[in-house]
């Protein structure tokens, strides 16, 4: 009994050193050497300010920017999470109808029955950086009007959406999507 306990403690110490200290430090070393930008959060720096991470969605509710998805945590990552409302939730039903009304109010040119589902429903992490290209295109009229864009610049904006659209990875994995933060950065430069 006593020897077994001593062995347990010793082997636990050895494995803790190996898997809990050496291994993570080794991975950190490789990561920082080979993929430093990614290992540190794919941060976007403008001037000398960090303005976000390419991977983490931000709150966009101003009419001059492309809106991001609804978020159960309002894009505050501390901590991340979804609404966890179930399929018969009356609260979610109410939220969907509120969001629909809000969308139609700010984008009067789009058909309320054709709003992409991701713009009415919150993501799992609350930090989804993407929307569908269709959801971006539906917002062009509103943004062009809010920014007093000429027809020519509006066409440029549509081209930016096409350029920034990400196809499924390696052309077969995942969904077609567009990153809202990088899209809005491009919009500001237009």
């Amino acid at each position: 009994m006593k020897t077994q306990l001593i062995i347990s403690i010793k082997i636990f110490a050895v494995l803790t050193l190996l898997c809990g200290i050496v291994y993570p430090l080794f991975i950190t070393g490789i990561a920082q050497l080979v993929f430093p930008a990614k290992a540190n959060g794919s941060l976007i720096v403008q001037g000398n300010k960090v303005i976000g991470s390419e991977l983490i969605g931000q709150k966009f509710d101003s009419i001059i920017y492309f809106s991001s998805r609804p978020s159960a945590i309002d894009y505050n990552p501390m901590p991340s999470g979804g609404s966890n409302f179930g399929p018969t939730s009356s609260k979610l039903k109410q939220l969907i109808s509120d969001r629909k009304a809000q969308w139609v109010k700010s984008n009067p040119t789009s058909d309320p029955e054709k709003i992409p589902a991701e713009m009415l429903l919150a993501s799992a992490s609350g930090l989804d950086p993407h929307i569908s290209p269709k959801a971006a295109l539906l917002q062009v009229d509103r943004i062009a009007k809010a920014r007093n864009f000429s027809e020519e610049r509006k066409q440029q904006l549509i081209k930016v959406i096409t350029d920034q659209t990400e196809s499924p990875q390696f052309s077969f994995l995942g969904e077609t999507r567009i990153n809202v933060l990088t899209l809005n950065l491009a919009l500001d430069k237009l």
């Binding site: 998805r69 979610l92 969907i96 589902a117 991701e118 009415l120 429903l121 993501s123 989804d128 999507r177």
Partner: peptide, 13 residues
């Protein structure tokens, strides 16, 4: 929910 795609609690990617 009006027959929309079931994207609640899911990520776009």
């Amino acid at each position: 929910f009006g027959n929309i795609a079931a994207m609640e609690g899911k990520e776009t990617r």
